[in-house]
Amino acid sequence: MWNLADKTIESRLLLGTARYPSPLVLQDAVKASGSEVITVSLRRESAQENMSRQFWDYLLESGAHILPNTAGCHSVKEAIVTAHLARELFDTNWIKLEVIGNDDTLQPDPFATVEAARILNNEGFEVFPYTTDDLIVAEKLRDVGCRIIMPWGAPIGSGQGLRNVEALRTMRRRLPELTLIVDAGIGAPSHAAYALELGFDAVLLNTAVALADDPVKMATAFNFAVSAGRMAYEGGLMQASSRAHPSSPTVGLPFWHHEQNS
């Protein structure tokens, strides 16, 4: 069990709910993933269709903690309003803060993200900011009150994995008091396991499961990978070495080894 923003949960996998082939597959994938936190967005509702009611009913049924996002926002103002609407709609102070600075790379705008985080923290939100692997930005987010930082592994939806492992490792080492979650870019269970092995508290992903040939099977794989990665971190990984070391004892080798060496 671990603590995420004052909630005690077991899974270290946070799962997005977009791009699944069907609502049923989404439900089965969430179950298979073991995730207890799922992300959602807000979009314009048509009066003619009431799709949101069905989606909301599912969210309630899932029993998961809801993490609304500000996806699509490009300014501090847009992000703040979206956070207010999310709080009104979902009755939660959790907000996954995304302020996009570039539509091609979906890279966050670090200046707007820090400013929006400052305002939202002052208003009592629990801000989950999506950021890059830049340590200084992470420190600024901490300085404005964030207890959780979510650096990307790689651009959203790219599936490239952890592109800058050293930067992530440094962030983990320099910010031991914060909850760090790798958000975006995870493409394979091995990427997720690696993030957990580095000491990250959790990973947040969506596309790698949603667009898999078999999303439910992939969700299961991520479930195992995240558990394995965390266990490996807690177990303490061995130090890598530049030279080989025999695993078996060299004392008491049979005579033919001595003959070969003489």
Partner: peptide, 10 residues
């Protein structure tokens, strides 16, 4: 006026 509803998201 913006009228917004829950939607799948990542």
């Amino acid at each position: 006026i913006e009228i917004l509803a829950p939607m799948a998201g990542g």
